[in-house]
Simulated assay, not measured.
Amino acid sequence: MTKKQLPLDELSGAIGRILGLLLTEEKVDQAVQNLSLAIKESVPGTIGAGVSILDSQARRTSTGFTDSIVEQADHLQYELGQGPCLTSWAFEESVLLDDVRTDTRWPEWSAAVSALPIRSVISAPLMANGHSIGAIKVYASEPSVFDTAAVSLMELFASPAATLLSHIQSAETPKRISEGLQTALHSRDMVNRACGILMERHKITHERALQQLILQSRNKDQSLQEVSAELVAGIPADRN
């Protein structure tokens, strides 16, 4: 499939429109919904888009999606504790998935969405003040629809959007920010180190190690950073 890139003037207009939507918004839930709709219209080849703000246990505090397909695909990620969006959020880097049916990084999630018209995925972290507060993602119905140019486009949208979303959320619910978002400001290096320990100990993949950390975080009601730090420090945080 031929990949289309936005002309510079069209790109500038798309970014400006997205920022304009967020600048006029006062509620984070409506802001993430507006952002998901704008991203779908701006990224070529996209059939659906979503936005998630996450707490320290990788649970969504706010979410926006363009349709039921995105809603189902996202729900399955957070239910299973694995998927491109969670990986993007935890490791603070963009994830490009060429084909859900052949990629082996998230086997349970890939199997769960096999009945949905989803083949290609991009997920980019929402980085505010140097930390990941969530992720944006787009889906396509054919394999290999997205490329590195599309990843760069998503990152262009994500950077200013994250700053504005964090301001909206902070102004809207100071308690949620202090108790949720602040504890989610985890260290990518710490999470990576903890994943490395689990990979070596159990001979598992990077993504499987992350899934274990996320599930432990939820079970223990601790942040992903706290679980990772305990493991790195030698405390057996990987026990069920």
Results as ranks from 00 to 15, higher is better:
L156I: 11
L165H: 04
E172F: 01
Q169I: 01
S144W: 03
F157Q: 13
L198D: 00
R193V: 00
S187Q: 07
K175T: 12
L185C: 14
I204V: 12
P160H: 10
V191E: 00
A149S: 15
M199V: 02
H167N: 14
E172V: 02
A194I: 00
L165D: 02
L156T: 10
Q212I: 05
F146L: 07
E207N: 10
A161M: 06
M199I: 02
S170W: 00
V191Y: 00
R176F: 02
R208P: 00
G196P: 06
D189P: 05
Q169P: 00
A194Q: 04
T205N: 10
P174M: 09
H202W: 11
H202I: 07
T183I: 12
L165T: 04
N192E: 15
M190V: 15
S187V: 03
A158F: 06
I214T: 05
I168N: 04
R208F: 03
H202Y: 14
L210A: 12
L156G: 10
S187L: 09
C195K: 01
D147S: 13
Q182V: 11
S178E: 15
P174Q: 10
S178Y: 10
V145A: 08
M199C: 13
M199S: 11
S144R: 12
C195G: 05
Q169M: 11
A162D: 07
F146K: 03
E179Q: 07
R193L: 04
D189W: 14
R201C: 08
P160W: 09
I197Q: 00
L185V: 08
A209S: 08
I214H: 01
K175A: 10
A162R: 02
T183A: 15
R208E: 10
V191G: 01
M154C: 14
L185R: 15
A209G: 02
T173I: 08
M154I: 05
D147W: 14
E207L: 06
S170M: 04
Q211S: 10
A171L: 04
R193P: 00
E179A: 02
A162Q: 06
T173N: 15
S166D: 15
V191M: 01
S166Y: 12
I204N: 05
Q211I: 03
A209L: 04
S178G: 13
P160Q: 12
T163Y: 05
I197L: 08
G180Q: 00
S159M: 07
S178W: 09
I204P: 02
A150H: 15
L198K: 01
L165Y: 05
L153G: 00
R188S: 13
F157V: 09
T205L: 13
D147R: 09
T205V: 05
I177H: 04
S144M: 12
Q169H: 06
F157Y: 14
L198I: 06
H202R: 15
L185I: 10
I204R: 06
L181V: 08
E179V: 03
S152D: 14
S166C: 14
